[in-house]
Design a protein around this nucleic acid. Sequence first.
DNA 1: ATCACAATAT
DNA 2: GATATTGTGA
Length: 291
Amino acid sequence: MREEDSNWFSKWEEELPSPEELMPLSQSLITPDLAIAFNIPSPQQALHHTPPHPPQHPPQSTAHSSQPNSSAEFDSPEGGGGGGGTGSDEPARTLKRPRLVWTPQLHKRFVDAVAHLGIKNAVPKTIMQLMSVDGLTRENVASHLQKYRLYLKRMQGISNGGGGGNNSPAALSACGMDPATDHLFASSPVPAHFLHPGRPNSEHFLPFVPVAAMQHHHPMAVVPPAGHHHPQLQQQFRHFGNSPPNGQFEHPFMRQSQQQPQRTPYMEDVELAATAKNGRKVLTLFPTGDD
DNA sequence: ATCACAATAT
DNA sequence: GATATTGTGA
């Protein structure tokens, strides 16, 4: 099996998209524990924060210029206040994180990660690591991945139906791709059609995509309108039409220290908004760059 | 231990 | 309705 290793290695080098494509993959999310502990208020909507006991000073402004490194030392949110029944300053472990909101941007990062990993290596853990989104858990990715796969299956099911009889239950119910069933997924261009991993044989059209005249390929995330603080861009695109099916490829990837929960060390200008909805808090992440 | 998938819960 | 959680089997 050693030989195979060298094999994929050479391929790996050649097929690598470019450092720039991989580099910008780094996003930071406020440590959810911190978010909860501080009950981050939205800059626009002052939600009433009704914690059992607000022991900390109320957060005045957004958690800016903060360095919530991987270490968060806060007593558990539960409890009875003060006492710490657990007896130790165990970092919020069994904390209930707010629901993660998959914004189109976040989903895009997800798709990018999956695309670059290849279907074979696109497993929750790896995806999560590649995404480098602080606070993102394996469960988050797994759940999303599960849904995303269903979406892909539907897409493949209908585009392939040529054979005359579509007996697949998926194909039957997938006859319409306009329903709002997949508005999120449709908002993100599927790079290379993630085909099945066990079929490296597909004569497809050129993987060439006529690059539009407008394409900014800067490795550095450009800060959009520096000065305007109106981060509320929870827009819903009604964009249909997918990229044409392209060839498929896969890249084995390097391995990272598995024992080190290495989260992104850098903290970018990330806007975080917590919205209280019927007691349901959601975490929204706003990336500082738009592709 | 991790993944995948279905079913169910919030 | 979108995510989270849980259960089961590989």
